[in-house]
Nucleic acid binder design. Structure first.
Lengths: 161, 161
DNA sequence: TTAGAACCTGCAGTGACTACAGATTCAAGA
DNA sequence: TCTTGAATCTGTAGTCACTGCAGGTTCTAA
């Protein structure tokens, strides 16, 4: 009937899996390539066939990404989920570390926002001889500076996008 | 005395410029390569020599980065700063757009933070049969889900780092 | 049988750097 | 003048998490 090497009810091709999870096909293949998803079965022609185990694993990864974990962190979390002993403490440690970095990023972004909104308001009030935004960028002694003065050199980019 | 093609008081080598701005040497060269900084003069041996104009331009770029602008946005802002006519309105538009994207990123991060903190607290309260973090990742119908249910597929990564 | 959708592999590009190799130049001391 | 070692040079590759494309193969429905 069909040419699956091992076909079961509920098996999906990559396109169907992409559709049901909202994860692009290319990304699924990428996750497999870097070892975050196990290799699925194949049809005789070489097309991937996913069973329930694969689907659960992909969902795990995607939920991790929604919470902002890096793929390396997710890799650790996957290992913990499959291990068991002491997993909860280790998972909590990963989460706390991640929470710290999110808080730091929010703090960074909030500082930027504050300065930018002040500058944009100054633009709007207008009738200044020069643009407050461009002046601030051209010369930090002008209105845009942070209250605490010159900040430490930024080794990591503030907004890597 | 020295071998500058055109030497002036206040001229700096790349190392001194890096030191005074806090911007790594490699990054300065990178900005030059992508055309964000103009090509500096050179010594007869080929070492870069920076004058005040270059220093001001680098400072402009770095302040833009501190405010989270992308290098492309900074490129536009540089052009506006050198142009003049209507520059303020254009600069404000760029800033407002940037403000919008920062607000969106803060909102994303705040949502993540909320879920993560709830999960980490649940871990700490402990004595559960299973780890709340790992359970949430394994099965979204558990405690970690957002109130509005399954979110739209995330085409852009939530935290690209 | 055939058309076309879906899938395959492999590679290149993104942004904003960062790191390295291997060569050259510079400045200061002997 | 010579030497030493720091600073600089160019060019390339790696980072993260994908995304897009070229060129080929397989699958499925009519």
């Amino acid at each position: 009937m069909h040419s699956f090497t091992t076909a079961r009810a509920g098996d999906d091709r990559i396109g169907a899996l992409a559709l049901s999870t909202g994860c692009p096909v290319e990304t699924i293949r990428y996750y497999e390539k870097i070892g975050l998803l196990p290799q699925p079965l194949r049809t005789t022609g070489g097309h991937r066939v996913y069973g329930d185990g694969h689907k659960r694993r992909l969902a795990f990864v995607l939920r991790g990404r929604e919470l902002g974990f890096s793929l390396e962190e997710i890799r650790e979390l996957v290992a913990l989920a499959e291990d068991g002993t002491g997993a909860c403490q280790a998972a909590e440690a990963i989460a706390r570390r991640h929470i710290g970095s999110i808080e730091a990023r929010i703090a960074d972004l909030s500082r930027m926002l504050e300065v930018l909104e002040r500058l944009a308001r100054a633009c709007r009030r207008g009738r200044r001889p020069h643009c407050p935004i461009l002046e601030t960028l051209s010369d930090a002694t002008k209105s845009g500076e942070c209250p605490e003065g010159r900040r430490a050199p930024n080794r990591r980019a503030p907004e890597p996008r």
